[in-house]
Design a protein around this nucleic acid. Structure first.
Lengths: 239, 239
DNA sequence: CGGATATTTGATCAGACTCAACAGCTGTGG
DNA sequence: CCACAGCTGTTGAGTCTGATCAAATATCCG
């Protein structure tokens, strides 16, 4: 899955766009793919705005969220490197996206994406796979929000994050083998899990008291008992 | 969007698969597309089973759901005619599907779908659009489950169902212009909205007392004040 | 009619929210 | 070096929404 460094600048970028990319196509891609940097907290895609661009994250983490008119917020997911953003059914985005930390991404206009899709046959299939993955993850999150308790939600979140860190070692620093980095604060985690920041803090305390996790410095969590975490996440441990 | 009756047996079927289908391709499609009927309550696709088939609903409504080990159930959505089921990232289905009422569908094996996708160019794009729609709807549902009250959830559900009835008039009987049909019982609605059947019943009563809806016979609801319904759905009406 | 299933209604309970106060960390400026 | 502000996270007390449990009623269908 990791492409050779030779293609374009960022391995994730070429991988995400069209897999094994040929040297002769680089020039063409460079014309339609624009690099961007976004500072933490900056919103680069807003709900209900015209969906003119697609984005592919190359580094950092992006928070995706929806808002109700009175300000209630639901974080619908986090986009990590390799993620593809910007699908919209009705011509406008259905969610907003803001950088959780320093984010690099590349932008492709709606017009150009169609050319790319037509020219790079395997790209369409890849996008289809990405969307399919994302839908599967969204459905898992529906189960979480609809039927899990606060403790189960937090355990699920930490478990999933740990899995992702396994799948993509870039997330994990060598100094903390079992540590996962949470680039978002408790407010954001709360909005993701349908809870409040107080409840997130309390449940974090419950897991810490049970020696299942421990604090590994700012923004870092050490998972000490992953089996226990997974059992809680699946509701197999009575509260 | 409605295909001509001449293509295959079901207009929805040809539309869903590959849009304007040519006469000469019908024979080929018929070889890989198998028709099926499913009785109400029957489960034809089970979570964690090998994802060997894709399905396209041609009539009726299908309930999609996920289960926790202890039996808690979350309905992740309803698949109406034209919907495409069976995407799986890890080789197994991520959810189960059972017929809500009498359902007709066609089955395409995983092997055959790849041939179809390769041969019918516009099919891949159509599937991509369907997936994109579905993801958008899933995100809307995340907002509902994470941040809306019981009343707001039910109002959202009824509002969305009404919109769908507008978009596809087949849903609506001419005898009840504003009536929508709910082919699922309160238990299923509850599992969809992350509530209990008692709460669904109570909130239905609240909307009825407020003259926003009224009962239109079994499985049928009349929406009397759609604006009010939408305002509640968006949380713009203080409880 | 009768039995099964679904819905409605009531009373009580509990998990998570709200509001409020406090602690810890970080960076800033005197 | 310390004082302080500002932000994030923690902890506590009280409240409330929706769940649970139980019973009554309604609806469907043979």
């Amino acid at each position: 899955m990791i492409a050779s460094e030779k293609c374009l600048r960022c391995p994730v970028r070429s991988t995400a766009i069209c897999g094994g990319i040929k040297q002769k196509d680089i020039a063409r891609l460079s014309k339609v793919v624009h690099d961007m940097k976004v500072a933490p907290g900056d919103c680069f895609l807003e709900q209900d705005e015209p969906a003119d661009n697609y984005f592919i994250i190359t580094s950092g983490t992006v928070t995706l969220f929806k808002l109700l008119p009175d300000g209630r917020r639901q974080v619908t997911g986090f986009a990590d490197p390799g993620h593809f953003l910007g699908f919209a059914n009705g011509g406008t985005y259905g969610f907003s996206a803001e950088a959780a930390d320093c984010v690099s991404l590349c932008r492709i206009s709606r017009r150009d994406i169609n050319v790319l899709l037509a020219d790079f046959r395997d790209m369409e299939r890849r996008v289809l796979d990405l969307l399919s993955d994302e839908l599967t993850r969204a459905q898992e999150q529906l189960l979480l929000l609809g039927r899990k308790t606060a403790l189960e939600r937090l355990a699920s979140f930490l478990s999933t994050r740990t899995e992702q860190a396994d799948a993509w070692p870039g997330y994990r620093t060598e100094s903390a083998r079992d540590g996962i980095v949470l680039p978002m604060n408790n407010d954001t985690i709360a909005d993701y899990l349908g809870l409040t920041n107080e409840t997130v803090s309390r449940m974090m305390g419950v897991l810490r008291d049970a020696r299942i996790i421990s604090r590994g410095g700012r923004n870092r969590v050490l998972v000490r008992d992953r089996d226990a975490l997974d059992r809680i996440a699946l509701g197999e441990t009575p509260v």
